[in-house]
Amino acid sequence: MSMSESASTPATSGPASQEGFSPTQQERDELRRHGILLTSLEELYNWGRSNSVWPLNFGLACCAIEMIAASMARFDIARFGSEVFRPSPRQADLLIVSGTVTKKMAPQVIRLWNQMPEPKYCIAMGACAISGGPFKQGYNVLKGIDRYLPVDIYIPGCPPRPEALLHGLMQLQAQIRGQKLTGPDRPRHLRADTGCAYPVPEFGAHDLEPPANPEVWQAPSLPRSG
Protein backbone atom coordinates (compact mmCIF):
# COMPACT_ATOMS: atom_id res chain seq x y z
CA MET A 1 0.00 0.00 0.00
CA SER A 2 2.80 2.32 0.83
CA MET A 3 4.17 1.85 -2.64
CA SER A 4 1.01 3.04 -4.25
CA GLU A 5 1.11 6.12 -2.10
CA SER A 6 4.67 6.82 -3.04
CA ALA A 7 3.58 6.96 -6.65
CA SER A 8 2.07 10.32 -6.22
CA THR A 9 -0.57 10.33 -8.84
CA PRO A 10 -3.91 11.97 -8.26
CA ALA A 11 -5.68 8.70 -8.91
CA THR A 12 -4.19 6.98 -5.89
CA SER A 13 -5.60 9.53 -3.54
CA GLY A 14 -9.06 8.10 -4.11
CA PRO A 15 -10.85 5.76 -1.78
CA ALA A 16 -9.60 2.82 -3.82
CA SER A 17 -6.23 3.01 -2.13
CA GLN A 18 -7.72 2.51 1.28
CA GLU A 19 -9.16 -0.85 2.13
CA GLY A 20 -9.76 -3.59 -0.45
CA PHE A 21 -7.14 -2.18 -2.75
CA SER A 22 -8.14 -2.60 -6.37
CA PRO A 23 -6.17 -0.23 -8.55
CA THR A 24 -7.49 1.03 -11.84
CA GLN A 25 -5.65 0.46 -15.07
CA GLN A 26 -4.25 3.98 -14.96
CA GLU A 27 -2.91 3.40 -11.51
CA ARG A 28 -1.35 0.17 -12.57
CA ASP A 29 0.30 1.79 -15.55
CA GLU A 30 1.63 4.52 -13.34
CA LEU A 31 3.03 2.02 -10.89
CA ARG A 32 4.56 0.07 -13.73
CA ARG A 33 6.36 3.17 -14.84
CA HIS A 34 7.90 3.33 -11.39
CA GLY A 35 8.98 -0.27 -11.68
CA ILE A 36 6.34 -1.72 -9.44
CA LEU A 37 4.42 -4.73 -10.66
CA LEU A 38 0.98 -5.16 -9.31
CA THR A 39 -0.62 -8.25 -10.57
CA SER A 40 -3.10 -10.88 -9.80
CA LEU A 41 -4.31 -14.14 -11.20
CA GLU A 42 -7.13 -12.21 -12.75
CA GLU A 43 -4.81 -10.07 -14.76
CA LEU A 44 -2.73 -13.01 -15.91
CA TYR A 45 -5.86 -14.87 -16.95
CA ASN A 46 -7.27 -11.91 -18.83
CA TRP A 47 -3.93 -11.16 -20.42
CA GLY A 48 -3.61 -14.74 -21.61
CA ARG A 49 -7.00 -15.10 -23.14
CA SER A 50 -7.05 -11.64 -24.67
CA ASN A 51 -3.81 -12.24 -26.51
CA SER A 52 -4.76 -15.62 -27.80
CA VAL A 53 -8.16 -15.27 -29.41
CA TRP A 54 -8.48 -18.03 -31.96
CA PRO A 55 -11.39 -17.51 -34.32
CA LEU A 56 -13.52 -20.26 -35.76
CA ASN A 57 -12.80 -20.84 -39.42
CA PHE A 58 -16.35 -20.05 -40.34
CA GLY A 59 -17.57 -17.80 -43.10
CA LEU A 60 -21.12 -17.05 -44.06
CA ALA A 61 -21.25 -14.55 -46.88
CA CYS A 62 -19.59 -11.48 -48.32
CA CYS A 63 -18.01 -10.49 -45.00
CA ALA A 64 -16.20 -13.84 -44.91
CA ILE A 65 -14.09 -12.69 -47.84
CA GLU A 66 -13.08 -9.60 -45.91
CA MET A 67 -12.42 -11.80 -42.90
CA ILE A 68 -10.10 -13.89 -45.06
CA ALA A 69 -8.56 -10.68 -46.34
CA ALA A 70 -7.91 -9.63 -42.75
CA SER A 71 -5.91 -12.80 -42.22
CA MET A 72 -3.92 -12.24 -45.40
CA ALA A 73 -0.57 -10.59 -45.73
CA ARG A 74 -1.65 -6.96 -46.02
CA PHE A 75 -3.71 -6.84 -42.85
CA ASP A 76 -2.34 -9.89 -41.07
CA ILE A 77 -4.52 -10.68 -38.13
CA ALA A 78 -1.60 -12.88 -36.98
CA ARG A 79 -0.03 -9.84 -35.38
CA PHE A 80 -2.64 -10.13 -32.66
CA GLY A 81 -2.06 -13.85 -32.30
CA SER A 82 -5.38 -14.57 -33.95
CA GLU A 83 -4.36 -16.16 -37.22
CA VAL A 84 -4.98 -19.63 -35.85
CA PHE A 85 -8.33 -20.12 -37.57
CA ARG A 86 -9.46 -23.39 -36.07
CA PRO A 87 -11.82 -25.42 -38.22
CA SER A 88 -13.30 -27.23 -35.25
CA PRO A 89 -15.45 -25.23 -32.83
CA ARG A 90 -13.95 -27.19 -29.94
CA GLN A 91 -10.67 -25.32 -30.25
CA ALA A 92 -12.03 -21.91 -31.13
CA ASP A 93 -12.56 -18.95 -28.84
CA LEU A 94 -14.23 -16.52 -31.15
CA LEU A 95 -17.23 -16.90 -33.40
CA ILE A 96 -17.11 -14.28 -36.11
CA VAL A 97 -20.59 -14.23 -37.60
CA SER A 98 -19.38 -12.91 -40.91
CA GLY A 99 -22.33 -12.29 -43.13
CA THR A 100 -26.02 -12.83 -43.56
CA VAL A 101 -27.50 -15.40 -41.22
CA THR A 102 -30.45 -16.95 -42.97
CA LYS A 103 -33.19 -18.70 -41.11
CA LYS A 104 -32.03 -21.96 -42.61
CA MET A 105 -28.52 -21.37 -41.27
CA ALA A 106 -29.37 -19.91 -37.86
CA PRO A 107 -29.79 -23.24 -36.01
CA GLN A 108 -26.40 -24.36 -37.28
CA VAL A 109 -24.74 -21.16 -36.12
CA ILE A 110 -26.22 -21.61 -32.67
CA ARG A 111 -25.14 -25.23 -32.62
CA LEU A 112 -21.61 -24.15 -33.46
CA TRP A 113 -21.72 -21.62 -30.65
CA ASN A 114 -22.91 -24.28 -28.25
CA GLN A 115 -20.07 -26.54 -29.32
CA MET A 116 -17.45 -23.97 -28.46
CA PRO A 117 -15.85 -24.22 -25.04
CA GLU A 118 -16.04 -21.34 -22.60
CA PRO A 119 -14.71 -18.66 -22.40
CA LYS A 120 -15.95 -17.76 -25.86
CA TYR A 121 -16.79 -14.56 -27.65
CA CYS A 122 -19.01 -13.56 -30.53
CA ILE A 123 -18.45 -10.84 -33.07
CA ALA A 124 -21.32 -9.81 -35.34
CA MET A 125 -19.49 -8.70 -38.44
CA GLY A 126 -21.35 -6.63 -40.95
CA ALA A 127 -24.80 -5.15 -41.27
CA CYS A 128 -26.45 -8.49 -42.02
CA ALA A 129 -25.20 -10.20 -38.88
CA ILE A 130 -26.21 -7.17 -36.82
CA SER A 131 -29.69 -6.60 -38.15
CA GLY A 132 -30.26 -8.36 -41.45
CA GLY A 133 -28.71 -5.43 -43.26
CA PRO A 134 -29.88 -4.78 -46.80
CA PHE A 135 -31.62 -8.13 -46.82
CA LYS A 136 -33.65 -7.36 -43.74
CA GLN A 137 -36.95 -7.48 -45.59
CA GLY A 138 -36.27 -10.98 -46.90
CA TYR A 139 -38.43 -13.84 -45.73
CA ASN A 140 -35.48 -16.16 -45.10
CA VAL A 141 -33.15 -13.66 -43.43
CA LEU A 142 -32.63 -13.57 -39.70
CA LYS A 143 -32.80 -10.00 -38.52
CA GLY A 144 -29.64 -10.07 -36.47
CA ILE A 145 -27.81 -12.93 -34.83
CA ASP A 146 -28.29 -11.23 -31.47
CA ARG A 147 -31.81 -12.63 -31.46
CA TYR A 148 -30.26 -15.94 -30.48
CA LEU A 149 -26.71 -15.32 -29.31
CA PRO A 150 -25.03 -12.92 -26.91
CA VAL A 151 -22.90 -10.70 -29.13
CA ASP A 152 -19.81 -9.04 -27.66
CA ILE A 153 -18.77 -6.79 -30.51
CA TYR A 154 -20.76 -5.36 -33.40
CA ILE A 155 -18.79 -4.29 -36.47
CA PRO A 156 -20.89 -2.21 -38.86
CA GLY A 157 -20.28 -2.05 -42.57
CA CYS A 158 -21.41 -3.82 -45.67
CA PRO A 159 -18.97 -5.44 -45.62
CA PRO A 160 -16.69 -3.92 -42.98
CA ARG A 161 -13.18 -3.35 -44.17
CA PRO A 162 -10.52 -5.69 -42.81
CA GLU A 163 -9.23 -2.80 -40.72
CA ALA A 164 -12.64 -2.63 -39.09
CA LEU A 165 -12.42 -6.28 -38.18
CA LEU A 166 -8.99 -5.71 -36.67
CA HIS A 167 -10.39 -2.79 -34.72
CA GLY A 168 -13.22 -4.98 -33.52
CA LEU A 169 -10.73 -7.59 -32.42
CA MET A 170 -8.75 -5.01 -30.48
CA GLN A 171 -11.93 -3.79 -28.84
CA LEU A 172 -12.70 -7.36 -27.88
CA GLN A 173 -9.24 -7.71 -26.37
CA ALA A 174 -9.76 -4.53 -24.37
CA GLN A 175 -13.13 -5.83 -23.23
CA ILE A 176 -11.58 -9.09 -22.07
CA ARG A 177 -8.77 -7.28 -20.26
CA GLY A 178 -11.29 -5.19 -18.39
CA GLN A 179 -13.33 -8.12 -17.13
CA LYS A 180 -13.57 -8.77 -13.42
CA LEU A 181 -13.70 -12.39 -12.51
CA THR A 182 -15.66 -11.80 -9.35
CA GLY A 183 -18.59 -9.62 -8.60
CA PRO A 184 -21.94 -9.21 -10.23
CA ASP A 185 -20.65 -8.46 -13.74
CA ARG A 186 -18.33 -11.42 -13.98
CA PRO A 187 -18.21 -13.18 -17.33
CA ARG A 188 -20.83 -15.67 -18.35
CA HIS A 189 -18.78 -18.80 -17.86
CA LEU A 190 -18.09 -18.00 -14.24
CA ARG A 191 -21.72 -17.60 -13.32
CA ALA A 192 -23.86 -20.39 -12.09
CA ASP A 193 -27.14 -18.81 -13.15
CA THR A 194 -26.52 -18.70 -16.90
CA GLY A 195 -26.07 -21.81 -18.94
CA CYS A 196 -23.56 -21.96 -21.72
CA ALA A 197 -25.84 -23.80 -24.14
CA TYR A 198 -28.35 -21.70 -25.98
CA PRO A 199 -31.61 -23.18 -27.25
CA VAL A 200 -31.51 -24.10 -30.92
CA PRO A 201 -34.62 -23.01 -32.84
CA GLU A 202 -36.65 -25.50 -34.82
CA PHE A 203 -37.68 -25.21 -38.45
CA GLY A 204 -41.36 -24.35 -38.47
CA ALA A 205 -43.96 -24.30 -41.21
CA HIS A 206 -43.53 -20.58 -41.81
CA ASP A 207 -40.69 -19.35 -39.64
CA LEU A 208 -38.17 -20.43 -37.07
CA GLU A 209 -39.70 -21.48 -33.78
CA PRO A 210 -39.19 -19.60 -31.58
CA PRO A 211 -38.32 -16.53 -33.67
CA ALA A 212 -35.98 -15.26 -30.96
CA ASN A 213 -34.44 -16.35 -27.70
CA PRO A 214 -36.25 -14.23 -25.09
CA GLU A 215 -33.38 -14.56 -22.63
CA VAL A 216 -31.05 -12.83 -25.02
CA TRP A 217 -33.27 -10.54 -27.01
CA GLN A 218 -36.50 -8.68 -26.46
CA ALA A 219 -38.35 -7.04 -29.29
CA PRO A 220 -38.05 -3.28 -28.95
CA SER A 221 -41.36 -1.56 -28.45
CA LEU A 222 -42.47 1.18 -30.76
CA PRO A 223 -41.23 4.35 -29.13
CA ARG A 224 -43.86 6.58 -30.68
CA SER A 225 -47.47 6.20 -31.57
CA GLY A 226 -48.46 5.77 -35.09
Binding site: E43, G48, R74, F80
Partner: peptide, 28 residues
Protein backbone atom coordinates in the same frame (compact mmCIF):
# COMPACT_ATOMS: atom_id res chain seq x y z
CA UNK B 1 3.71 -10.94 -43.42
CA UNK B 2 5.05 -10.25 -39.92
CA UNK B 3 3.38 -13.00 -37.94
CA UNK B 4 2.57 -12.68 -34.23
CA UNK B 5 4.30 -9.58 -32.89
CA UNK B 6 1.84 -7.99 -30.52
CA UNK B 7 1.37 -10.00 -27.36
CA UNK B 8 3.09 -7.76 -24.82
CA UNK B 9 5.07 -9.44 -22.10
CA UNK B 10 2.75 -10.05 -19.21
CA UNK B 11 2.58 -7.15 -16.74
CA UNK B 12 5.25 -5.15 -18.48
CA UNK B 13 3.44 -3.97 -21.61
CA UNK B 14 6.68 -4.61 -23.41
CA UNK B 15 6.35 -5.79 -26.96
CA UNK B 16 9.13 -8.22 -27.74
CA UNK B 17 8.37 -9.46 -31.23
CA UNK B 18 5.54 -11.61 -29.93
CA UNK B 19 7.80 -13.65 -27.68
CA UNK B 20 5.05 -13.88 -25.10
CA UNK B 21 2.60 -15.32 -27.59
CA UNK B 22 3.15 -18.96 -26.55
CA UNK B 23 2.69 -17.98 -22.92
CA UNK B 24 -0.64 -16.38 -23.69
CA UNK B 25 -1.68 -19.39 -25.70
CA UNK B 26 -0.67 -21.64 -22.84
CA UNK B 27 -2.61 -19.63 -20.26
CA UNK B 28 -5.66 -19.64 -22.45
Amino acid sequence: RPGPNRAPLPFLNLRTYGLAQPVADGVK
